[in-house]
Computed example of a mutant assay.
Amino acid sequence: MASPKTSEPPYYPLPSNQHHQNYVVYLPSASRRRQSRRRILCTAAIVLLAAAVYFLWPSDPDLDIARLRLDHLRIHTVPTFAVDATLRLTVKIINVDVYSIDYSSLVVSIGYRGKNLGFVTSDRGHVRGMASSYVDATLELEGVEVLSDVIMLVEDLARGSVPFDTITEVRGRLGVFFFDIPLKVNQ
């Protein structure tokens, strides 16, 4: 009876020479493969966490005076040179974050040529995440003395535009998930 054929190749012993050379082959062990996977996963987790913090970190909202309209202007010359004016303001609050903003106050201060003329305060409001909101306000200036700037004011009125300086401050809270983070912005 013939021996059954096996699928294994036959074993041939290495030839014996006088000069024996030893070869060592290092194969990565399973524990080293696990360690390298852990390092890759830790690095990926750190990179993802840093990216999440960068994109989700709360930033200040942008505030712009969208509209400033002069409703009433009266110039007094007696007893001193003074101006009465009524200004209508529209302030645009732009929230660039994914979080909502609940503001408790919005204060807009108006100045002319470095002198503070007055300010207006608005009531509470809400701006959704990645959205904008408009706040209307009326500023009434009575008896503002601008004697030193009369010539510049007359020139500005003749040109048809008066360059006012504005400083806007918003106070409120950012709605981050279930937490409220205090917010104060000056622009």
Rank of each mutant, 00 (worst) to 15 (best):
Met1Ala: 15
Ala2Gly: 04
Lys5His: 13
Lys5Met: 07
Glu8Phe: 00
Glu8Met: 00
Pro9Ser: 06
Pro9Gly: 02
Pro10Met: 06
Tyr11Arg: 02
Tyr12Asp: 08
Leu14Gln: 07
Pro15Thr: 14
Ser16Cys: 08
Asn17Lys: 03
Gln18Cys: 06
His19Leu: 13
His20Asn: 09
His20Ser: 12
Asn22Arg: 08
Asn22Gly: 08
Val25Arg: 13
Val25Ser: 01
Tyr26Ile: 02
Leu27Ser: 02
Leu27Met: 03
Arg32Glu: 07
Arg33Ala: 01
Ser36Trp: 13
Arg38Cys: 10
Arg39Cys: 12
Leu41Asp: 05
Cys42Met: 05
Ala44Tyr: 04
Ala44Leu: 13
Ala45Phe: 14
Ala45His: 02
Val47Tyr: 06
Val47Pro: 03
Val47Arg: 00
Leu49Ala: 15
Val53Gln: 12
Val53Pro: 03
Val53Trp: 14
Trp57His: 10
Pro58Gly: 06
Ser59Lys: 10
Asp60Leu: 01
Asp60Trp: 00
Asp60Ser: 08
Pro61Tyr: 00
Leu63His: 02
Asp64Ser: 05
Ala66Leu: 02
Leu70Cys: 12
Leu73Lys: 09
Arg74Ala: 10
Thr77Val: 06
Val78Ile: 11
Val78Met: 09
Pro79Phe: 08
Thr80Ala: 09
Thr80Arg: 14
Phe81Cys: 00
Phe81Glu: 00
Val83Cys: 00
Leu87Gly: 02
Arg88Asn: 15
Leu89Ala: 02
Leu89Pro: 06
Thr90Arg: 13
Thr90Cys: 09
Val91Trp: 02
Ile93Cys: 03
Ile93Gln: 07
Ile93Tyr: 06
Asn95Trp: 04
Asn95His: 07
Val96His: 09
Val96Tyr: 04
Val96Glu: 07
Val98Ala: 07
Tyr99Pro: 01
Tyr99Trp: 15
Tyr103Gln: 05
Ser105Ala: 00
Val107Pro: 03
Ile110Gly: 11
Gly111Pro: 10
Tyr112Lys: 07
Gly114Leu: 00
Gly114Pro: 07
Gly118Thr: 03
Val120Tyr: 03
Ser122His: 04
Val127Glu: 09
Arg128Asn: 11
Ser132Trp: 14
Ser132His: 15
Tyr134Trp: 09
Val135Cys: 02
Thr138Cys: 07
Glu140Asn: 12
Val146Leu: 10
Ser148Pro: 01
Ser148Ile: 05
Asp149Glu: 13
Val150Leu: 13
Leu153Met: 11
Leu153Ala: 10
Val154Phe: 15
Glu155Ser: 05
Glu155Tyr: 03
Arg159Tyr: 03
Arg159Gly: 08
Ser161Gln: 11
Val162Met: 12
Phe164Gly: 04
Phe164Ala: 05
Ile167His: 14
Thr168His: 01
Glu169Thr: 13
Glu169Arg: 14
Val170Tyr: 01
Val170Gly: 01
Val170Asp: 00
Gly172Phe: 11
Gly172Val: 06
Arg173Phe: 13
Arg173Asn: 15
Leu174Glu: 11
Gly175Asp: 05
Val176Thr: 08
Phe177Gly: 10
Phe177Trp: 12
Phe177Met: 15
Phe178Gln: 12
Phe178Thr: 15
Phe179Ile: 15
Asp180His: 13
Pro182Trp: 10
Pro182Phe: 08
Lys184Ala: 14
Val185Asp: 04
Gln187Thr: 15
